[in-house]
């Protein structure tokens, strides 16, 4: 129960927020790979192997 909070560590956990003019960069850096992509890659690899 007696948790000792370390303020410096807690503050360090906060990350800067992206500004509006950084939105484009954020969009490009977004990892859009989903399970569908992975399945497609797996399926494609399997088909090529079978051929």
């Amino acid at each position: 129960m007696c948790n000792v909070i370390n303020y410096e560590e807690e503050i360090a956990k906060f990350q800067p927020s992206l500004e509006v003019d950084q939105a484009e960069e954020a969009i490009y850096n977004n990892d859009l790979t989903d399970i569908m992509d992975i399945l497609a890659m797996v399926t494609k690899g399997k088909n090529e192997t079978e051929k």
Binding site: I11, P16, S17, L18, E19, V20
Partner: peptide, 18 residues
């Protein structure tokens, strides 16, 4: 809203510098 973000980033920098 953008000004709020900028001030937040500045405040975070100030907080990191105690």
């Amino acid at each position: 809203l953008n000004q709020a973000i900028k001030k937040y980033n500045y405040a975070l920098s100030s907080a990191l510098q105690e």
